[in-house]
Write a protein that binds this DNA or RNA. Structure first.
Lengths: 168, 168
DNA sequence: TCCAAACCCTTGGATGTCCTAGTATATTGC
DNA sequence: GCAATATACTAGGACATCCAAGGGTTTGGA
């Protein structure tokens, strides 16, 4: 948060694990803790880049997803599945995006249970601008070496598949 | 959340990025998104394992940190720095742990601004039990290949150092 | 045909994270 | 020695996530 620590706290945790006789799981513990911390750092960068647009990452992801849909609209349950978040999280995001005039809710033409989320012209424009900034300020300066990016994609892809995210 | 998707949504997002002319940042975008999703999966596993103890990951981390402190006590600001979370998050966690009788707040002997968090005997016992379960149910079955764990530790360690987490 | 089971979205509640601001205590510098 | 600055913790607010439950809509088998 503020000043860098003199020592890596995760490496220290690993040492503690080993000292307590849990050597067998010390490495995965360290890897998992590092993933948690890395996510926190990246999320902060992303939120910082999106703040000028009045967007959060959750809302941006929904906008981006809609912008790639051919019709610019998706059922809420589909958005929930693709974003891999709980349906109530989508409800929450749509509420706020709708208040901001970036999306609309419309009834599904044939299924009365389903609600479609539709991108407004303003929403489409904002998604484009926000993506440009994210690309240049965050993704373009991730701090990962090129080959490490490939490694991450491979390792985490395998993990996600095994965790049941997709069957691909 | 429920059924596996037929296709990897992150791989699809990467294709969309490439189709829109953002090939240069498509890979890091995919890697970062994968980190976000992986964190979500792991956190759910951890929280599931800790639920029987009435603990969340945030509270567990604090208990574990205290259990490794020689005296079983740490200043709140130190805990905030080591856990790398905002001071108010520590205040929140301590409030709940204190309500549960797992930690105590005590005044710092020489600095009136500082509050020490102290592990109670119950807190120490619970930390031990929770660690055993986490080790066997989560860290021991992470789903990462052994060499991938090492790769993750290396890649994310470099990232965290560059992000200013530590100078080590 | 008709009712039970399945599915979809929303509301309400619990947690965690961060930010901003405010109070109290220490430290610094003049 | 005292005022200005820095540090430590907490209160209040905004968001996001998940879970449990409830009301409306479809589907499917008896």
């Amino acid at each position: 948060m503020g000043t860098p620590l003199p020592r890596d706290p995760i490496a220290d945790a690993r040492l503690n694990w080993e000292r307590h006789g849990w050597s067998g799981v010390a490495a995965p513990m360290a890897a998992i803790t590092a993933i948690m911390r890395t996510q926190q750092i990246l999320l902060a960068r992303i939120e910082g880049a999106l703040r000028p647009f009045g967007l959060t990452f959750a809302r941006y992801e929904l906008l981006a997803l809609l912008s790639f849909a051919r019709s610019g609209a998706l059922p809420m349950n589909k958005a929930s599945a693709l974003l891999q978040v709980h349906p109530t999280s989508v409800t929450n995001a749509v509420d706020r995006l709708q208040d901001a005039g970036l999306v609309l809710r419309s009834p599904h033409p044939t299924d009365g249970r389903t609600t479609l989320i539709e991108l407004t012209p303003e929403g489409r424009t904002l998604a484009k601008s926000a993506t440009a900034v994210l690309n240049s300020e965050v993704f373009g300066r991730s701090g990962f070496a090129e080959q490490d990016v490939d490694e991450l994609i491979r390792i985490l892809g395998t993990f996600r598949r095994n965790a049941g995210d997709f069957t691909d």
